Simulated scan of single mutants.
Amino acid sequence: MSFAQHSFGKLSRWGFAAILSLCAISALSGLATVAVADDTLTIGDKAPKLDIEHWLSDRDGEFSGFTGFEADKVYIVEFWATWCGPCISSMPHIVETQDEYADKGVQVISVSKEKLETVEKFLKKNVGGDKEKTYAELTSAYCLTTDPDGSVSKDYMTAAGQGGIPTAFIVGKTGEIEWIGHPMRMDKPLEEIVEDKWDRESFAKEFSVQQKADLMMASIGKLLRADKPEEALKKIDTYLEENSETADARTIARMKGMRISAAMAAGGEESIAAYKELIESAGDEPRMINRLTGRVVSQHKAGEKFEEELLKTACEAAARSVELTEKDGKDEAIASALSTHANLLYICNKLEDAIAVQKKAVALATKESFKKFLEKLEKELSESKG
């Protein structure tokens, strides 16, 4: 197979999620040029009503008959799910918080959007590390609920641009949103809100920056999922041009990471430059290099086509990964790096070189797939010689 057969238009199968995982890019922050829409729920807004279908606990009747947010009381509306590890890990802390503030006018309301039977099944399970207590007993200290139609989640999570759980919204004494964040970080804000010492205006400014960042990332992700990487690139480049000297280094680095994702999806020269940048960012980390080069191999097997220069870059990087792994890696790791290199040599139409490298991989590890690939290579070489 010649290089010419590998020319391509777009790296569609790489996809937004795959590139993000390779770059280890987390949520963006500080995208100050993005405006929060008028209908976005944010700090200082009136808290939406809670129309929850199923209430499974109410602190032994202490919070029964909820009809709405009452003046001079504070509410923690927390979103969770039975499948969410961090949500479950936060439960003991939420219990402690409710116990501490129950007599200070604070009510915790945890909201899932799963089916009632799903939540009920979860509540029957024993708390991890405690065979004597179920999750139903643990969460009886506060209001645990589920709203299968998802309306409450839509009114809070979606409206505020929050994509991850657990997320807590603190509704203050005036019925307005005072704070939004992870429930494990709400201790100090809650204390100040209860004691009327909370600086809402200051937090609102801080949160607005993060919220704008979340909305920006969501909009870029939407463009990429809609196969519009060029539009995503324009949006990112505009930001970098306008904020390169004023935004903090962490934000710029993450934004550049997002640009790599868009460039990879755009294809052509943009994708080649982006892939080279990815390889450079891996530094002397052989495992990361092997992941990046291995991605090219797996996508090629799936039918993806790559530019000649990108394949050459991947092949050279794979060879470097072998050298780095050989310094202090175990035989299995070295064999894996060698096999990746052999695969890329094969893709680049260097059959004999690929066989020589794959033989080394087989000598170090007895993995069946390594042997089969070597047999395939040797068979092709034999057939090519007639």
Rank of each mutant, 00 (worst) to 15 (best):
M1K: 14
F3K: 14
A4P: 00
Q5G: 04
A18K: 13
L28W: 00
L31E: 01
A32F: 10
A35M: 09
A37D: 09
D45Y: 03
S57W: 03
F63V: 01
F63K: 04
G65I: 12
F66S: 01
W83I: 00
W83A: 02
C87R: 10
G105K: 15
I109Q: 01
V111S: 10
K113G: 04
K121R: 14
Y135F: 14
A141D: 06
S153M: 11
D155V: 07
T158K: 15
A160M: 05
I165F: 03
F169W: 06
F169A: 11
P183C: 06
M184K: 13
R185G: 07
P189S: 04
E191A: 03
E192P: 02
I193R: 05
R200A: 09
S208I: 08
Q210M: 13
L215A: 14
M217G: 11
K222T: 10
L223C: 00
R225P: 02
E231W: 03
K235M: 06
D237W: 05
T246V: 12
A247D: 12
A247M: 04
A247I: 01
R254Y: 13
A266R: 05
A266V: 03
E270N: 15
I272E: 12
K276F: 00
E280L: 03
G283A: 02
M288S: 08
L292H: 07
K301L: 13
C315D: 09
E316L: 11
D328Y: 00
S336W: 10
I347F: 07
L351S: 15
A354Y: 02
Q358T: 02
K360I: 12
K367G: 05
K371D: 11
K372L: 12
K376G: 14
